Amino acid sequence: MGFDLEALREAVKSHGRVTRVVIAAIKGSSPREVGASMLVWPGGQSGTIGGGTLEFEAAEAARRQTSERVLSHHALGPDMGQCCGGAVSLLSEVYDVDTVNTLDDEIICRATDERTMPLTVKRVLNEARGQGTRPEAQLIDGWMIEPVHKPARQLWIWGAGHVGRALVDVLSPLPDLAITWVDTGPERFPETIPAGVTTLPAAKPAELVRYAPTDAEHLVLTYSHTLDLELCNRLLNHDFAFAGLIGSATKWARFRSRLGKLGHTPDRISRITCPIGDPSLGKHPQMIAVGVAADMLRPALTETRKKDLSA
């Protein structure tokens, strides 16, 4: 969780004036955590602070907001049609092209009123910057501190066919993924690319493996078995955090044999997971995408299934 600066910049670029509403503090039970936010503009919004009456009323207030910054407090209970029983503080801030360009790219810290920065806030900032760590989103003595969101995981999707498109649709909304999408030409990609996805058309996609971070995750599902095999070979020579290959048991048996002839040991080859997703869900692209997404969100499950498949 963090301040999604890129999403805010994109919203301002598309809609002009945008109000960002963030949960600044909670007491007791709350539908979302501190740092959860939404962006609001006339006629639309993105993100969520928990849904229900709280979100509806906060969005309506955000559209009417005229001051630059408002800190409000809300009790969650029967009067609001919610049963959380707690209370939340919301910080609503208006941004436009000029103000969004003044924001820091690492930690965003601002006063909710006119008070000067207290020592407690300076200590949090100094510790975070001195140790190179990310402070938690928090409201301290009238000042709101939020780390700028940085995707924790790099995912490379090789192939923009039906399954590749389904995977991007399912995975791109996840906040901790930065997706690089590769195929042989620009015509292979859809006209609209989701935010947070970088397309890389290349006549020889396998040549791009060398540029992938060694801690990246990869999903290989191109239109060509020959290209799939070349990508697996290049990935095994390059290193990765995870590599998954679409295909049947027969395809994987052939690939294991060919990768062995290319000089890779059985232990090394077994680092590639095939098939990906949950075969019991079926072969529909969206079903494959749902299974893959579930495995990526539960790494331990991926390892367990991988051992079962290789047994």
Rank of each mutant, 00 (worst) to 15 (best):
E55T: 00
A75I: 09
T99W: 01
E93A: 06
N101Q: 15
A61N: 09
R63G: 01
L103A: 07
H73I: 07
G43T: 15
G77P: 03
Q65R: 02
E106F: 04
F56P: 00
E55M: 01
V70M: 09
D79L: 10
M38I: 04
D104C: 15
M38D: 02
A36D: 06
E93L: 11
C84Q: 05
G44L: 07
S67P: 07
S72E: 08
M80I: 13
A61M: 12
A36C: 10
Q45H: 14
N101D: 15
T66G: 08
T53C: 12
V40A: 00
T99F: 03
R63D: 04
L90Y: 01
T53K: 07
G85A: 11
S67L: 14
T102S: 14
L54A: 02
G47E: 01
A59E: 00
Q65N: 04
P42N: 10
L54D: 02
V100Y: 04
E93N: 09
G81N: 09
G77H: 07
P78N: 09
L71K: 11
L91G: 00
I108N: 14
L54W: 03
L76R: 06
S92A: 15
V97F: 05
L91H: 01
R69S: 11
M80N: 12
I107K: 04
Q45P: 05
D98F: 11
H73C: 10
C84R: 00
T53Y: 06
